[in-house]
Simulated scan of single mutants.
Amino acid sequence: MSTMTEAVRSSATGGGRRPRAPRVRTTTKRAHSTYYWMIWPCVIAFALFHTVPMLVGVFFSFTNYAGYGDWNFVGISNYLNLFRDDRVWNAYGFTFLFAIAATILTNAISLAIAMGLNAKIKARNFFRGVYFVPYVLAMLVIGYVFQYLFTNSLPRLFPDIPLFADNILSNPDWAWLAIVALAVWQGCAFTIIIYLSGLQTIPSELYEAASLDGASSWRQFWAITFPLISAFFTINVVLSLKGYLQVFDPIVALTNGGPGTSTESVTMLIFKGGYAGGEFAYQTANAVIFFIVITVVSLLQFRVLQRREADA
């Protein structure tokens, strides 16, 4: 009897030996190797086309290289000269003025449109597609269309308004408004989609309860809508400001930095001086400074806005 019981136990446990699972380990190793074979080409390509050129640019920022011919090391003189250059300061001033104005307008208009699209209106999906069309179109193509509107159509339609009658693009004090209008018109498309995604995560029961308590629409917005989409607001503000700080295409299409240098952004200055003005090393140093500025601004935005999310 005891012999039969031991035999049954032995057969149930595989003859007293522990079960082996070499196939599971082999499969795991294969999965890991496949994963690395997929990742490494991307890492190498990113390093070759992004990291290495960036490091080469940082290296040349400490030289007097003009983009051709011989060069010598000049230390940090390029960086010191940037702080003494009035044209650089004007470019930074215009860039931040433009970026702040465009960011505020883009987010305010996009949130208003997104709330309208999120409501129960007819042909809601149609209007969502219409509002996203500007994001698909090429900026230069849109820019030349807007240039025609500002130089020909608006002066004919509003001859009594001085801002439009004299061609706003030739006015050094107001030409930046035309660039803001173009950038906001296209930038709203992507921002609306982000806000719509956030608005659709809010339960409708919250608005019903607030309505029963007598809360007005404005009160519902500040007490329910805005706090619950604060994460989406953070994403939109950071992406908008970062993108507008690097503004280039709208300026090329509308004013090319003019009249004079009144609408010359930092990226436009780097392009003009570095590729056409024989200031390759000097403008590369400017690009390094600009990269640091954008990084610091983005990190500060994240810190301030995420702290506000936590408080909300």
Rank of each mutant, 00 (worst) to 15 (best):
M1H: 07
G14P: 01
G14W: 03
P19T: 15
A21H: 14
R23D: 08
R23V: 13
Y36W: 15
W37K: 10
I39V: 15
I39M: 14
C42S: 11
V43C: 05
I44V: 15
V52T: 12
V52F: 08
P53K: 11
V56W: 07
T63K: 07
G67C: 06
G67P: 02
Y68T: 13
G69H: 04
N72C: 05
N72V: 04
V74N: 10
V74K: 06
N81W: 03
R84P: 00
R84K: 09
D86F: 13
V88F: 06
V88R: 03
W89S: 14
A91P: 01
Y92G: 02
G93S: 09
F94N: 07
T95H: 03
L97K: 14
L97E: 11
A101I: 14
A102P: 01
T103E: 08
T106E: 15
A108C: 02
I113H: 00
G116D: 00
K120R: 08
I121R: 00
A123E: 02
F127P: 00
G129A: 06
F132L: 03
V136L: 14
M139A: 08
M139F: 05
I142Y: 02
F146I: 12
L149A: 14
L149R: 04
S153F: 15
I161A: 12
A165Q: 05
L169A: 10
W176R: 08
A181P: 00
C188A: 05
I192A: 01
L199T: 02
T201L: 09
I202V: 11
L206E: 12
D213V: 03
Q220E: 04
F221S: 03
F226V: 02
L228V: 10
L228T: 04
I229Q: 07
S230F: 09
A231N: 15
F232K: 13
K242P: 00
G243W: 06
Q246D: 13
F248Y: 15
D249A: 14
P250K: 15
I251S: 04
I251V: 15
V252S: 04
N256M: 13
T261M: 06
T263V: 13
V266Y: 02
G273Y: 03
G274C: 08
Y275F: 14
A276Q: 13
G277F: 07
G278C: 08
F280D: 01
Y282F: 15
F290N: 06
F291H: 06
I292S: 09
I294G: 10
V297G: 04
S298F: 04
V304C: 01
L305W: 01
L305N: 02
E309P: 01
